[in-house]
Design a protein around this nucleic acid. Sequence first.
DNA 1: GTTAGGG
DNA 2: CCCTAAC
Length: 480
Amino acid sequence: MNHQVEEDSFYHSLGEEASDVDCLLVEPRSDQVSVSGVWCYEEDNRAKCIKTENAPYNLGVPDSNRNMEGVDVTIRNAFDVLPHEVGVNNLLTTNVSHSDDYLLDIGFDHGAFIGYVSNEGLHTRNTQFPMKGSFDVQNSLTENILGIEYQNYLLSNCIFGTSTNSSEPKGLDRFEDFSNSFVDQENNNQDILLPQFSQNEMEVTPFCKDGPTSTSSVEDHGGVGELTHKRSRKPTKRYIDESSMLSLNNSKKRREASCGSRVKLSGVRRVKSQIEVKPKEKMLPAAVSFDKAIQVPFSSHVPTECQKSNSPAKVSKNALCISRKSFERVQIEKHIENYSSEPEDDSETMTRSVTGGNQRKHHRVWTVSEVKKLLDGVAHFGVGKWTHIKKSLFSSSAHRTPVDLKDKWRNLLKASHALKGSKTEDDQKRSQSWRPLPKSVLCRVRELASIYPYRQESSPKISKSKFQNNSSPGRVKSPV
DNA sequence: GTTAGGG
DNA sequence: CCCTAAC
């Protein structure tokens, strides 16, 4: 078959399939993987390699736009380079997979760049090249086409950085696909110079025009010395920065998505570790992050299979169940309290309290005795000394943390203010209905709040004498 | 580690 | 009760 005919059809197909070369310079996107490819000319065809060395410059350009030399003037001007080194390394173009961190989405469809030839038949598709050995591409066409930055980008991150040992399993499937696509065309297109891949050895061997057999090896190739020269180049600072920014943006988006999907229900919570941004760590897939970021209901009231369900609908359903059962538990606890004025905190009043893992802590209704203890602690140590109060008065209550004490004190303040604000007895009655606290307790709260500074700078020993020593009030939380 | 404050 | 910033 005439080589020139093949070349023309090749160009023609590219003109149909390939996109504008400007797309090569767009910013990468994370959701696609772009590829490029390597085509090697056999040494016997070195002359033809030189003859067609300008092929990549005609990508996406109709034949009419090419000049006598077959070089597209437009593209050449665009890159302002000359393909002087084409063919030296038998490297026509590159087509290599990228890691996710360095995705180069050039906005192509399948068979982008040089990768697709219809009819007569090259099909490179979006294929990863699990290459054995590295290519010396310093003089390759890549530099001429895309410039130093893009070359560094490709070199350092994907193409030739793939070492001999790194046989990524991820690329095997595509490799097989790729290889088959070539084999299919092998018999019909022996004039076309194709790379041959040995899947077992993960190596790229040139496809010989005259003897296109799978037995051709790298050693048969004249330019093997150049081809097998390894290159390892570190990513440029620019791409490190860009990739880090990309990761941060992705993580930020994931976090926002997670927060957006977060179901704000009392019975569910999100997993803290999944929310924290850890740029240095390998980011989890978005799906995993999404699943773990959803608040899951605490388990004691929920069947096990329901706990593992992460869909928002199921969470809501569980939350309803939780609310109802929490209400029941509250009723039980109130019932117990009627018989025991001091339901000791350590003995679990709920039979179904299982706290562990990432489950939300059980809601424990504050009993009047607990409130009184808290008030005593506040009177003794002062407001804000929650750890002291906890250690001295709530040491036996494992479920009352200093934060709980603080929160309860805050709620008591609100309750006292509400009681103070409600003038009529009807209001007080209504407030009492949902604030089952004795009025005396609330009055004491108000009193303490007006007396003790909220944050004592000095030693809490100062307020050892209750209700009097307010000589150094410091910052007093005004009771309003 | 503790606390305050928003949720 | 959780979460987080501030201390």
